[in-house]
Design a protein around this nucleic acid. Structure first.
Lengths: 106, 106
DNA sequence: CAACTATATGTCATATTTGACATACATTCA
DNA sequence: TGAATGTATGTCAAATATGACATATAGTTG
């Protein structure tokens, strides 16, 4: 893993500090993290596009403002399930979701 | 929801029996379920393609035979996170994963 | 037939994820 | 200034997901 990527992940709260973790992030593990970050970004940009506050979105998808914030921040405590459920609840199609999954995070 | 679809889901163990549930499955909710089933099918066909047993796959992805069986059966107790982690651990690419997400379940 | 291999199903203690809440921080506006 | 609005962060009890285990079922082989 490149240092730039490590910093990006650490900035989002992922624990990649130990030497073992640093060396052991497999291709599958980093692909998983990248997908999660891509979904986070998609959620945030979709919300902003709709000019919604986090509170409004929380009501719409039956969650809470704090969890929306954590989703958008790419917090390690949020699952892909929740991100996908939320995007689907916002009206995003399966096809659009697939595109998000496929794309590398900007 | 069509009766044929309801039966397919019920056969996989989803609780769609009550009248309320029957009427209330939103577009997002059914899209979510369909995606999960698509991932289940992808996992099973990938494993068979590699001529692996469930036990072998369980070792490879650090899980257990019973959980692999539940994943492949589309059991409600398994998360999309686990399905995706498993597929990635099998060497499936993000792009292939995206295709699976996009496709309707056969 | 029994032994073997693969898969399915049920249970359960533990681990992770969740919404909710409090509260901190930031920005705007009057 | 301070009230209002939106977002971030930390915590926690409750809900959900997890691997492990036992055991059932099904097919195969000797």
């Amino acid at each position: 893993m490149k240092a730039s990527k490590q910093q990006k992940l650490e900035a989002k709260g992922w624990k990649v500090g130990s030497a073992a973790d640093f060396l052991d992030l497999s291709a599958g593990e980093s692909a998983y993290i990248e997908m999660k970050l891509a979904l986070s970004d998609a959620l945030k940009s979709r919300r902003l596009k709709e000019r919604m506050s986090q509170v409004e979105l929380a009501n719409k998808v039956q969650s809470s403002q704090s969890r929306i914030a954590k989703m958008e921040a790419g917090d390690p405590s949020v699952s892909i399930d929740l991100l996908m459920k939320s995007l689907l609840a916002m009206g995003v199609s399966r096809t659009e979701l697939a595109k998000t999954i496929a794309e590398p995070v900007s």
